[in-house]
Design a protein around this nucleic acid. Sequence first.
DNA 1: CTAAACAACTCTGTTGTTGATGC
DNA 2: CGCATCAACAACAGAGTTGTTTA
Length: 904
Amino acid sequence: MSDSEDDRPLKAKSKDTISKADDAAMDKQLPSNGHVEPGISMAMGPVEEMDVDKPTTNGTSSSKRKASRANGKSYKEASDSDDDVPLQKKRKTKVAESDDEDDVPLVKKMAKPIKATAAQMGEESDDDVPLGQQLQKEKAVIEEAATKEAQALRRQDKVADAKRKAKKKAASDDDDDDDVPLAKKKKAPVKKEGGAKKVKKEESDDDVPLSRKAPAKKTAGKAKKEETATPAKKGKAKVKKEEKTAEDEEAEAEEEDYRWWEDPTKGDGTIKWRTLEHNGVVFPPDYEPLPKNVKMLYDGTPVDLHPEAEELAYAFGSMLNSTHNVENPTFVKNFMDDFRKMLDSTGHAKDRDGNKVKITKFEKCDFQPIFNHVDAERQAKKALPAAEKKKLKAEKDEAEAPYMYCMWDGRKQKVGNFRVEPPGLFRGRGEHPKTGRFKKRVLPEQITINIGKEAMVPKPPEGHKWKEVKHDQEGTWLAMWQENINNAYKYVMLAANSDVKGQSDFKKFEKARELKKHIDSIRADYQRELKSEVMAERQRATAVYLIDQFALRAGNEKGEDEADTVGCCSLKFEHVTLRPPQTVIFDFLGKDSIRFYNEVTVDLQVFKNLKIFKREPKKEGDEIFDRLTTSSLNKHLSNYMTGLTAKVFRTYNASWTMSNLLKDMKSTGTIPERVKDYNDANRKVAILCNHKRTVAAGHDAQMEKMEDRINGLRYQQYRLKQQMLDLEPKLKKKRGEAYFALPEGIDDEWVKEYQAARVEEERQKIRKKFEKENEKLVAEGQKEMKTKELDERLKVADEMEAMFKEERKKKKKIEAEGKAPTVEKLEQSLEKLDTRIATMRTQAEDRDNNKEVALGTSKINYIDPRLTVVFSKKFNVPIERFFSKTLREKFDWAIKSVDEDWEF
DNA sequence: CTAAACAACTCTGTTGTTGATGC
DNA sequence: CGCATCAACAACAGAGTTGTTTA
């Protein structure tokens, strides 16, 4: 097959269309070319329902999905033999062999009859619904799908129409009240102006029409409101700033009872603010050259460096303890490249006699002196008296105070990241090709300021000027620059607890909730399109399936100079392994180079499709979805619902899962237990989203410690039992040998060690106490105690040791302890130990389960906070147990807006 | 008309700091 | 009660997604 028209001729591509014969061939489980693992069918057992997901028509309700994900079992017998059904619509759009042409225009494709759906629906059986009901349901769904499709078509036309109009009309701003997304309507004309403006500089800003017609009209109501509110508040805010005490802050919070989420004028619209005042950014401190006596060595010789070059050496030297970086060849190579370049441009290193030293080889560089110096400084800083530390912090806080807040439409708002990122060595994540390169200091000349037209522009540092000052009301950023490694944009924006961020967060979750209304038809559609003869369509349907079912990310294309990671659309041949009959194994690096590994059971059709997409001549390195891009996917999704994109599915599925888990929960028990119930649900969502973390360094040790403590308790139980025997030997017969035996996992060796540890512990305790008392005595000017006294005291431990020894020798004769011991009393202690062991076990399990799952990300970004508020109210757990202070501020809107009946 | 570039925003795990806890 | 330890938190900066503009 020749791919001559393709830009990347080496990449194999799928055919345009899939013939019936093609499809049929895939049914014979030829080990063919689809990289299929030999059949290992998994045991299939009944799967318990985990949530009350509304069953969807296709038998893949998300409840089953989740269950199958959780226990790795399939939920459906392979009963689906769709390909015997004649696909009557053999309407080939192209000759099968002509490759690489564009696909049929979307409209044409959409017009395809939905008969296939009907046929398919008929054969798939939803095992837990009676047949009669099932058929009815299916019929309804098919009809719905038909309507939806028609709607989608109409919508599409309209959008296209609107776009054409917009182009013609340019800046004219009349609204026709159709369902064309607002953003799109507005964006086109307004951005035109923006584009033109961009060429201009600050001084010509005056001729830019600030009062753009459209925005002015749109926000008229809001503006009025603001006019009355602003002056008063401004005045107060200023007074507050002078002496901001805790009480003031509180009073302010109380009077600031603005509920934007109830304000109908807030929300969409592209104008984000009317007035904006802020003080710009904080620059990192200038580089302070190292003291004269601290120098890096080259080939054993201390060398002098130009301060700019020294800054690089400093950057490398100060992270010598991070072997992960410093011993990474890419990191070292990139660093040395930049270091040498810097040396070339700033003049070479010199030895103490002023002779040039050409630094070339990393092996000859010794940064240890720099590290030692930095480390000493760090220690010194750490060792500073508390008062001193406090003072320094107060000074810093005061210096930064002006940058912490801005005035946004007259309201005081917290700024998120007002500090310009300091220079340093770039640490990409995963195997980033640019790791180790020097991220340069950002100069004011690179920074663009975005601020209100009337506001005072913050002064750049002495002798500098800003790159540009903008008044872009459509942007929510206050300042912006580009970093030199990837030319990535960096923005200074508001903090998460600000109104704007809250609003967009709110919108995000509302959008996810809206998806609920469309999800059934979307699922029905992709089920049908999984069998489309048009390759692009089939790939798209399969991708949507994966995104919906397994919470994959969209997966944009990535460049050569980025870490090699993928998402759904960019999955490659080697990332997906197929194991008949219908198991798919995903194994790839996703965002942040986090491994995504999942063995899942998929619909037979999906399995077959993946096999087709992997067909020859594709091989490792080739894309599975070669006819699909994230934009085409999102474009398709947006036909169902304004603003629907791949990422919305993640939000939707996460919140929907959480919602169902919480709905069914009857959390009783203590508050910690209820919190744990919540966290368990949280964890399921985190696993769904593949939110991982590296196992903490001390985790294993920690687990061992816990295990040891549990065993200690179990040994205590054993001793108690032996004591019972001491009191009542008959018990041995009554309860059986096993009852009195050493617990499993504990042997004589362990006991010996355990006892030795106890004895040692006791000794330490005594010594410590002794020393302390002595110190005190000295401090009071008295004589300290003799070592004899210590020895005397240590006798307690000696006795203990002797007793243990005796015990071990006699074997199983342990005398009952305590005053008036009875079997009953011992029994009681035994039970107490039982509960302690149980709680400790769950604690240990919990910790172990959590070792590589990060709960925070899903809590902060995916789970609708209102669900947490509902849980908190329903089960009477203070919200503080779930949301930290900052999170409570971020989710203020959620905390104040729902009662316990609210549903996602 | 694509593909790359530009732009702006969300999401992500790690790191440094802080506050609670246990001894 | 003072101290050390450790977990929880907030800050951080890199890595995605999405949409628009330009070559």
